[in-house]
Design a binder for these strands. Structure first.
Length: 548
RNA sequence: GGCCCCAUUGUCUAGUGGACCAGGACGUAGCCCUCUCAAGGCUAAAACACGGGUUCGAAUCCCGUUGGGGCCA
C-alpha cells in the first residue's frame, strides 16, 4: 500500500477560521495516525484577494494548534522569504520546477537545522507538540508550498494537455462570453461555455496574447467516484463545461492547480470541506486526461454558525487566533473541533491527543453539517484547565495578566491564588479579574457589593469589632482566622454570614471570590487591616450619617 | 435558475431492520453541598422533519415533499 500523504490547502484570503482548522486537524490526525505525511499548501492564486497577513495568520494558527506540517521547500532555499511568501521571482520558477519533477525524492525532507528567526514562532509551543509523534517535525524548518511559486509547473501541464488534444486555447473576449451567457439565459439554459474555440486552432497572428486555456470536457457519460465519508457519487458530464485551467496571466485556476499539486505532491487522500464536492468531478476529469491515478476523496461536512448558515464574521469569533486571544487552550479547541463531525460509538467527549490519534477515523465522520457551539467549547476548556497545575495556568496566563497591566512582581502569590481559584477559571483571560484585587494596591468596590453591605446597619459595628481581632492576630493563617471570626460570631450571637460578607467586600470589593479565610490569608494581615480601616472611614461612617 | 449534498432533543452526537416507549455530552431547570461566586453530586424536561411505501416488524431500506447547506453562474 502506498504511503499516506495528505494536505491542507487554504487560500490566504482571510484568517484561518474554525472550519478550516477542523479540516486541517482531520488531515493531520489522519496522517499522524497512519504514519503518513501532512503537507501545508497555500493556494494563493487569487492574487487580488491573497494577503501576506493571511498567510502569517494561517501559519501562526497552525502552530498554535500544533498542526505542524512535515515537509515543504526548505527555509534556507527561500532566502529572506521565511514565514511569508516573498518577492524573489527570479528563483521561483527554477526551484519549483525542480521540486515538481523530484517529488519522489523525499530525502530532501529530513529536517535541516532550525532557523533561529522562525524559532520565535515556536515560543508558545503547545503541549501538543511534545507528543512523540510530532517530535520529528521541526516547526519552521520548512515553509509551506505556495502555488504562486509553482506557476511554471502548471504551465507545463497545461501545454501538455493542449498537445494531447485535451485542452485548447480560447480567444473569446469578455464581451463575446457575456453575449453567450445572455443568450443562454434568455433561452433558460444553464449558462456554460459552449466550446466555440475548441476547433479554432492556435492563432499565430499575435492576437493570441489574451488567450486562456480551457479543458475539453467530455460531452456525454458521467463520472463516478467513491467518497470515504459520502459513499458512491455520480455526476453527469453534460452539466460541466469547458472550464478555464490557465488564465491569460499564466495563473492557473483553482481546480487545475489543485489537481496538479495533489498529484505531484503524491497526495493519497484528499480530505477537504464539503464545499469542494462539486469541484471534484472537474478534477477527476483532469486526472483522467493526464492519465493519473485518482487519490481517495473524503468530503467533510461544513461547520455552520448558530443560525445554521455558513460560519462568517457576523457570527462573532470565527478565527482560530481569536480563540487564542480569548484565552482558550489549544488542546481544548482541538478536542472540540474533533467532536464537530466526528464521534466514537460510545460518544466519548474528552480525548487526550494520543487517544484522538488512536481512535480517529474518516469513516466515523458525519455527513451532516455541524453548528458551532461555543458553550461546549467553553466547557471543554474548563475541563482542560482543571488538568493543569496552578503553575502551568500561571505561565499560560502571563500574556493576559500583562495585557491587563497588573503587577507581575509576585508570581508566587499569583500561583497561590490560582491554586485556590483554578476550578473557577473558564478562560485564561479570566485570570486578571481573579487576581487583580490581590496584586493591586487599591480596591475597586463594585456597586452591587457595596449596596449589599451598606444595607445591613450592623455591618459597621461588626467590622469595627472585627478589626482589632485581625490586628492582634499574630498567626494570620486561615485556620486560626476562621476560628477567631467564628468565635466572635458565637459570642455576639451573630450569624456568620453577617460577619463574613462585610469583611469580604471590605477587603476585596466584591461578593464573589475564594473562601473568606483563604482570601484573608492570601491577602495578608497588613492589607486586610488597612483595607478594613479604609473601608470603615470611607464608606460606613458616611452610611451612618446618611441614616440619621 | 441548474446540479449536488444533508436531515435523531436548543446544540454535538450514538444508532447500520427486532436489544430503542431512542443512549451519551454541552446547555437549561430543580435539589443537595456551602461564608460568597464557582466547582462537584443527584434529579428532571427535551428529539427520530413530513407523507407514502417495503416488511411480521423501520430512527434504520425505497420514493416523494419540505427545510437547510454547497457548487456553477
Amino acid at each position: 500500500m502506498n504511503k499516506i500523504r495528505v494536505r491542507f490547502a487554504p487560500s490566504p484570503t482571510g484568517y484561518l477560521h474554525i472550519g478550516g482548522a477542523r479540516t486541517a486537524l482531520f488531515n493531520w490526525l489522519f496522517a499522524k495516525k497512519n504514519g503518513g505525511a501532512f503537507i501545508l499548501r497555500i493556494e494563493d492564486t487569487d492574487e487580488a484577494r491573497s494577503t501576506d497577513e493571511s498567510i502569517r495568520a494561517i501559519i501562526e494558527s497552525m502552530q498554535w494548534l500544533g498542526l505542524n506540517w512535515d515537509e515543504g521547500p526548505k527555509i534556507e532555499d527561500r532566502g529572506q522569504r521565511t514565514e511569508v511568501r516573498g518577492q524573489g521571482t527570479e528563483v521561483r520558477g527554477q526551484r519549483t520546477e525542480v521540486r515538481g519533477q523530484k517529488t519522489g525524492d523525499r530525502e530532501k525532507t529530513h529536517p535541516p537545522p532550525l532557523i533561529s528567526q522562525l524559532s520565535s514562532l515556536n515560543s508558545h509551543l503547545s503541549p501538543l507538540t511534545s507528543h512523540p509523534s510530532t517530535l520529528n517535525s521541526q516547526l519552521g524548518s520548512y515553509g509551506p508550498y505556495f502555488q504562486m511559486e509553482r506557476l511554471d509547473i502548471y504551465k507545463k501541464y497545461a501545454k501538455q494537455l493542449i498537445s494531447n488534444g485535451k485542452a485548447y486555447y480560447c480567444y473569446c473576449t469578455p464581451e463575446e462570453l457575456k453575449t453567450m451567457r445572455e443568450e443562454q439565459q434568455s433561452k433558460k439554459l444553464p449558462p456554460k461555455y459552449d466550446g466555440r474555440c475548441r476547433n479554432r486552432g492556435v492563432r499565430t497572428d499575435g492576437g493570441g496574447q489574451n488567450a486562456v486555456i480551457r479543458f475539453k470536457m467530455p460531452r456525454e457519460g458521467k463520472i463516478a467516484f467513491d467518497d470515504i465519508v459520502r459513499g458512491h457519487l455520480e455526476f453527469e458530464n453534460t452539466l460541466l463545461d469547458d472550464f478555464v485551467i490557465l488564465k491569460a496571466s499564466g495563473v492557473p485556476t483553482y481546480n487545475f492547480a489543485c489537481t496538479i499539486d495533489d498529484k505531484l505532491m503524491e497526495i493519497s487522500h484528499v480530505i477537504r470541506g464539503d464545499d469542494h464536492l462539486s469541484n471534484t468531478p472537474r478534477q477527476i476529469h483532469l486526472y483522467n486526461a493526464l492519465n493519473w491515478e485518482l487519490p481517495q476523496f473524503a468530503h467533510l461536512s461544513m461547520i455552520l454558525g448558530p443560525d445554521g448558515s455558513r460560519l462568517s464574521k457576523r457570527h462573532g469569533h470565527t478565527s482560530v487566533l481569536e480563540y487564542k486571544n480569548d484565552g482558550y487552550l489549544n488542546v481544548a479547541l482541538i478536542n472540540y473541533l474533533a467532536l464537530l463531525g466526528w464521534s466514537t460509538s460510545d460518544s466519548q467527549q474528552i480525548f487526550e491527543l494520543d487517544e484522538l490519534l488512536n481512535k480517529f477515523s474518516l469513516e466515523k465522520c458525519s455527513k451532516s453539517p455541524a453548528i458551532f457551539d461555543i458553550q461546549k467549547l467553553q466547557w471543554l476548556n474548563m475541563e482542560y484547565l482543571k488538568k493543569l497545575s496552578a503553575e502551568e495556568i500561571y505561565k499560560k496566563s502571563i500574556p493576559f495578566i500583562t495585557n491587563a497591566a497588573l503587577p507581575m512582581d509576585n508570581p508566587g502569590l499569583i500561583i497561590k491564588i490560582l491554586r485556590t481559584e483554578k476550578e473557577k477559571i473558564k478562560l485564561l483571560s479570566d485570570v486578571p479579574n481573579i487576581i487583580d484585587f490581590f496584586v493591586l494596591n487599591d480596591v475597586k468596590y463594585e456597586s452591587s457589593a457595596l449596596e449589599k453591605v451598606l444595607k445591613d446597619e450592623n455591618a459597621d459595628k461588626i467590622l469595627r469589632d472585627l478589626l482589632p481581632i485581625f490586628e492582634n492576630c499574630n498567626d494570620f493563617s486561615k485556620v486560626l482566622l476562621e476560628k477567631s471570626v467564628r468565635n466572635f460570631c458565637e459570642l455576639n450571637g451573630i450569624k456568620t454570614s453577617r460577619a463574613f460578607h462585610p469583611v469580604r467586600v471590605a477587603v476585596s470589593g466584591r461578593m464573589y471570590g475564594p473562601g473568606l479565610f483563604d482570601l484573608l490569608e492570601l491577602l495578608g494581615k497588613q492589607k486586610v487591616v488597612e483595607r478594613i480601616a479604609k473601608f470603615l472611614s470611607e464608606y460606613l461612617e458616611y452610611g451612618e450619617e446618611d441614616k440619621s
